[in-house]
């Protein structure tokens, strides 16, 4: 028998914990890491003055943003304008429900091991699109609307290759549950990064595009669209967009870890440490790409998704099916 009040209290506490994790580890530390890695790659120092080695830079930035005035453009659609950042932030948060962080004794540390975990993850990623499109639309700003439209068409295009990669992994593991997928990967060479290498590559490219990062950052393209869909946002609402974006990016990295790198598995060190190491490895890869490559053109970007990744994903599903059943 389920003790419902107890479960609700636990759920509330877990939400607070995961939200804090996302805000501190993904958004605040992530932004700092991005600036530090960017500085390192471009042979400069990056933030250095607030706290030791600039460690408190984003904390200071957050405090600053909390004191900034919230400006609504007169032409904007107020209700939608004010809700859109919340949608993006919460969609980013929800992705974390199905991510297994590690093990404690013989229990797996995961908010909930949903039976349809992988589908749930894809569904939450697809909700972000709506938030971004709504934000871009409600601003009633030409740059913002163009950024929102571009972002939406890009994200829906790359959702399909992403789904193909998820399906290939589900075929290999025989389950849609994220914990089940990690458990299906035994040992170093059992991790799906080897057996599902093409799916891994497709997933990484599609994930980069899903979170609007270079070389797929057309929606934000600061040199042509100012800041894309959040041009008109100020202060904390701007920060919420950033929170959702970095939360989503870290969730994508965590999902790549779960699906292809064996999740929390690894020798000697505890599972959580392995999980974080692998996740940061993927995050570092995404940052490395960001500070190295230029931006795609819109037609090139759509071609890559529809004419390369999608057919490749379908063919890879056929190959996986052949390998498993014959």
């Amino acid at each position: 028998m389920v003790n419902w009040p107890l479960e609700i209290v636990r759920a509330v506490l877990l939400t607070a914990a995961v939200f804090t994790f996302m805000a501190v580890v993904a958004a605040m530390f992530g932004v700092l890491l991005e600036r530090k890695v960017g500085g390192w790659i471009q042979s400069r120092l990056g933030p250095k003055h607030v706290g030791p080695q600039g460690l408190l830079q984003t904390v200071a930035d957050t405090i600053k943003l909390l004191q900034k005035e919230h400006i609504e453009p007169r032409a904007a659609d107020r209700a939608i304008f004010n809700t859109a950042p919340l949608v993006v932030a919460v969609a980013g948060l929800m992705s974390w429900v199905v991510i297994p962080f590690g093990t404690l004794g013989d229990r797996v540390l995961v908010v909930r091991d949903l039976n349809i975990g992988v589908v749930f993850f894809a569904a939450m990623a697809s909700l972000t699109v709506v938030g971004i499109l709504a934000g871009g639309f409600a601003s009633n700003n030409k740059y913002a609307l163009l950024g929102g439209l571009r972002s939406a068409s890009q994200m829906i295009s790359y959702e399909l290759p992403l789904a193909m990669a998820l399906i290939a992994v589900a075929m290999e593991a025989g389950t849609l549950s994220t914990v089940g997928i990690v458990e299906a990967q035994a040992g170093w060479f059992g991790s799906f990064a080897f057996r599902q290498f093409p799916a891994f590559v497709i997933f990484l490219i599609a994930a980069t595009a899903e979170v609007n990062r270079v070389p797929f950052d057309l929606p934000e393209a600061e040199s042509e669209l100012v800041a894309g869909y959040f041009s008109e946002y100020t202060g904390m609402r701007f920060a919420l967009f950033q929170l959702g974006e970095y939360g989503e990016m870290f969730a994508m990295a965590a999902m790549a870890t779960t699906l292809f790198l064996g999740g929390w598995k690894g020798p000697v060190l505890p599972g959580v440490v392995w999980f974080l190491l692998k996740m940061y490895l993927i995050v570092f890869l995404l940052m490395w790409v960001r500070w190295t490559y230029p931006r795609y053109r819109l037609d090139q970007l759509l071609n890559l998704s529809w004419k390369v990744l999608l057919p490749a994903g379908l063919v890879w599903i056929l190959i996986t099916g052949y390998r498993v059943t014959f």
Binding site: A16, M94, V97, V111, R112, L114
Partner: peptide, 16 residues
């Protein structure tokens, strides 16, 4: 399982 998802949605919105 889905109670947790619902609580995540509601409390997440509140925290945001």
């Amino acid at each position: 399982d889905w109670l947790y998802v619902g609580v995540f949605l509601v409390v997440g919105l509140a925290m945001a």
